[in-house]
Design a binder for these strands. Structure first.
Lengths: 216, 216
DNA sequence: GGGTAAACGGAGGTGACCCTCCGAATCATA
DNA sequence: TATGATTCGGAGGGTCACCTCCGTTTACCC
C-alpha cells in the first residue's frame, strides 16, 4: 500500500526542525538568507530542505501559517475577558509583544502580502476582532470611530519595533500605552479621517517651503 | 594639474541619476536588488555603479544621508510653528507622510541600523525635537512623560505603513490621529512605563494558557 | 528479521550576481 | 582645436546560492 495518511517520523521531525531553524535564521540574517545555510543549521542535506519546501515562498507561507495557528490558541482568553476594553488591551499587549519577540515575523508578513496582494496580514482574526470592537464600543470605553482593521495595523506597527536592532525594544510598551490612550472614548474627540483619499492629500506638500524632499 | 575640487559634469550627473534610480529600484524590488539592474536602469555601465559606490552599503548610506539632508530643509518651519503642539503635529504629519511616500527608506534605515548599531535612525534631529518637546510640555499641551525619542519612533512606525503593498496606506492618517490623541496632556493619565526592563516582563507569558507560541 | 516504500544526503550543474579591468569616450583647459 | 586627465562601458572571471538527481539510509509493516 501507499499514500500513507501521516508522513514518516523522521520526515515530521525534520520538518519541525527546519521550521524552527528557519525562524532563527530569518531573524538573524533576513528573509532571503541562503537555504543551504538552513540545511546546515538543521543538520540535514540540501535535498531535504527542498523536499519539504519546494521554494522559499512555500517556507515563508508555512511560517506565516504556523504563526496564525499559534495566535489562534490565545483567542479564547480574549473572548473571556471581563470587558471589551480589557480584551483589546490584552490583545494589543500580547500579540504585539509576541511579534516583537519573533523578529522573523514582520518580514514574513511583508513577504506574504507581496505574494498575495489581496491578503492583508491578520485577516484571519477579523471576525473575532470585530466582535470585541463592537463590545467595547457598546461599553463606550473604545472610541466609536475606530475599526478592527485599525487595531490590527497597530499590532503590526508595534510588532515591527523589533526590527531596528533592538534599539527600539525598550519603547515598545510605552508606545503601546500611548496608543491605548488614543483609543479610549472621550467626550471631546474630533473624529478620525476616513479611509479614502486621505493619503493623496499629502502629496501636494503645499505647506512645504522651496525645494521639497522628492518622494519616490 | 590633478585632484580637481569638483568632479566632472558627467560624473556628477551619473551620481544623481544612480541615486534617483536606486530609490525606485529599492522601493520596487527591495534593498538587495541586483546592482547590475541599477546600472541598466540608470543607463550606465556596471563599472560606473561601482566607481560611485564601492559597495551596496555605501549606496545605502548615501541614500540615508540624502534623506536626512532633505528633512533638514523642513526644520525651520517646525521651529516657527505657533505653538509647540502644532510643531509636533506638523512634524509627525509631514515626516511620516514623507516616509510613507518613500517606500525605499524604511529598509534603508533598518540597514543603516545594522551597519552601525550605535546609531538610531533620526538621531540627527534629536536637539531640535528636544526643544520642541520642552516647549509643548511647558504649554501643557503635550503629556509630560513623553520624550523626543518616543516621537521619533512614532514617525518610524507610521512611515513603515508603506511597506505592506499599499494595503495599509489609507490608514496612515487615522493612525496618526490616534497617536496624537494619545499624546495630548490630560488630567487623568496614568504615567507611561519606564524604558527599562519593560519588555522582559513580557517573556514569562504567565497569562497565556497551555502551549504558548514560542518566541525566537 | 526481512522486505518495501519513503525519506535522506550531498555532490555537482546551472544560473545569477558581484566586481574588476582596460580600451574607448568624454570633459576641462588653453 | 588640441592635449591630457578623468570618467565611462560592458565583457568576463570568480563566487555563491539554488535546486536536482540518484545511490544510500531509515522507518514502517508483517
Amino acid at each position: 500500500m501507499s499514500s500513507s495518511l501521516s508522513p514518516r517520523r523522521d520526515a515530521r521531525r525534520n520538518h519541525e526542525r527546519l521550521l524552527a531553524e528557519a525562524k532563527q535564521l530569518f531573524a538573524e540574517r533576513g528573509i532571503d538568507a541562503p537555504l543551504d545555510e538552513l540545511a546546515v543549521r538543521a543538520g540535514v542535506g540540501a535535498g531535504t530542505v527542498y523536499r519539504h519546501f519546494p521554494n522559499r515562498d512555500a517556507l515563508v507561507r508555512e511560517l506565516y501559517d504556523a504563526a496564525v495557528t499559534d495566535l489562534r490558541e490565545f483567542a479564547p482568553q480574549f473572548l473571556a475577558a471581563e470587558t471589551g476594553w480589557k480584551a483589546i488591551e490584552l490583545w494589543l499587549d500580547l500579540v504585539s509583544g509576541w511579534l516583537v519577540a519573533s523578529p522573523h515575523l514582520p518580514a514574513v508578513m511583508r513577504r506574504v502580502a507581496e505574494l498575495d496582494p489581496t491578503h492583508r496580514p491578520g485577516t484571519e482574526f477579523a471576525p473575532m476582532m470585530d466582535a470585541v470592537v463592537s463590545r467595547a464600543k457598546a461599553e463606550a470605553t473604545l472610541r466609536q470611530d475606530v475599526t478592527a482593521v485599525d487595531l490590527s495595523i497597530m499590532v503590526d506597527m508595534l510588532g515591527s519595533l523589533g526590527q531596528y536592532g533592538g534599539a527600539y525594544l525598550p519603547y515598545w510598551r510605552r508606545q503601546l500605552a500611548v496608543m491605548l490612550d488614543g483609543l479610549r472614548a472621550r467626550p471631546d474627540l474630533t473624529p478620525l479621517p476616513g479611509e479614502g483619499q486621505a493619503f493623496d492629500e499629502f502629496h501636494d506638500m503645499s505647506h512645504a517651503k522651496g525645494s521639497s524632499p522628492a518622494p519616490r
